[in-house]
Amino acid sequence: MFCTAGPAQFRKRPKKRLAVAMKSAAGARHPSFDVWNASLGAAAAAIGTRGFPDALAAALRLLAPFQMMNGFLYSPDGHAFDLYNDKIVAVRSVIVDHYLAGAYVLDPFYDAVRSDRSQRMIVMRELAPDDFLQTEYHRQHYATTEIVDEIGFVLQLENGFIGVLSLSRTGTASLFATEDLERLRSAAPVVCALAARHWFHVPSLSLDIKNAAPAVRIEHPLLTRRELEIVTLILKGHSNLSLAAVLSLSPNTVKVHRRQVYSKLAISSQAELFRLFLA
C-alpha cells in the first residue's frame, strides 16, 4: 500500500519529547505473568457479556497505555458497519457516522484487511501512504478526533466479515514505542482469538445488511479507469512519486493524468476532489 517509512506525523516528533517517551516506555514495569494471566482470564470469562470490552481493554493496558478502543466491521462486498464504538473519546458524528457514510474506503486499515484477511495486528504508521497527513480524510477523521497513533487487531467473523478492533493514542499522548508494539504484537494471537469469539456472530445478529446502502465506490462518468485509480490513490494520500511506484508509471505521466483529472472535473484542490467523491 505505500511507502514503508510512514507519514511524517508518525515519524517526526520533538526529539526531547520522543526521548522522554522512549525512556518512560523502556523503564515501565511489565506485568507479571500472574497478573497478565488473571487479566486475560477475566476477559475470557466475560466473552458474550457487556463487560468483555472493558475487561479486554484492562488487559491490554497492562501491555501499553492508550486512550481509546473502538472498532469497525467490513463485509465481503465492501460495506462498513459499527463493531464497537461505545466509549469513543470524540463526537460520534465525526469518528463513526462520517466514517461509515463513506470515508472508510480511504482508511489504510480497510485496504489492509481487504488484501489480507488473516488475524494479526496492524499498525497505522506502517500502512499509511507518504502524503497521508495532507489528505482530507486525515484532516476530517484524525486531526478532528486528535488521534496521533493507532494499531488494530484483525478479527475473522461470521459470514466472511472482518472486524478491526483499534487502540488509539490521542491528544498529547506519545506514539506507541517500539517496545509497546512488540508486546502488543506478541499478544495479538490471543487478543484476536478472544475478540473474534466475542464478536463472531455480530454480522448475523446485529446488522441490517439487507437494508444497507450500496457499498461506496469511487467512480465518475467523465473519468477513465486509469484516472479513477489515480483519484483513489490521491484521496488515500499517495504523492506523485508514490503514485508512480504503485502504478508503474513515470512521475511525469502521473502529473499529466492528475492535471487531466482536475481539468475534467473543473477543480483545483484535493479538498474539492474529496467533496466531489465523498461529501
Rank of each mutant, 00 (worst) to 15 (best):
L62H: 00
P14D: 12
A64F: 01
P221N: 00
V105P: 00
V216T: 08
T145S: 12
F66V: 12
L276R: 11
H238N: 13
C3Y: 08
S248H: 15
A112S: 10
D208Q: 07
R225E: 12
F72M: 04
T145F: 04
S248K: 15
K87I: 04
I234D: 01
L273M: 10
F109I: 12
H98R: 14
A177R: 06
A90L: 10
A103C: 11
A173M: 09
L184Y: 03
N252F: 10
D111T: 14
A38F: 09
L63V: 11
S204C: 01
R61N: 03
A193K: 00
M22S: 11
I47Q: 10
L249W: 07
R92A: 10
K23W: 14
G41P: 08
E229R: 02
A112N: 07
L278Y: 02
M124E: 10
A45M: 04
R29V: 15
R11W: 12
A101P: 01
T144Y: 02
F132S: 02
F109V: 12
L223G: 00
P214I: 01
G160S: 08
E158V: 11
F72I: 04
G41A: 13
H257M: 04
M68L: 08
N37F: 09
Y110A: 11
K87P: 03
P189W: 07
V231Y: 10
I122D: 03
G237D: 04
P214G: 05
E179Y: 00
A279D: 15
A26P: 00
D130S: 15
L243Y: 03
Y137H: 14
P108T: 05
S32N: 08
S174Q: 02
A128Q: 06
A38I: 13
I267Y: 07
N70P: 07
A55Y: 06
W36E: 15
L194Q: 12
L233E: 05
V231N: 05
H201V: 09
V164E: 06
A103F: 02
W36S: 15
E219P: 02
S206E: 13
I230Y: 01
Y142F: 14
A28N: 03
E150T: 13
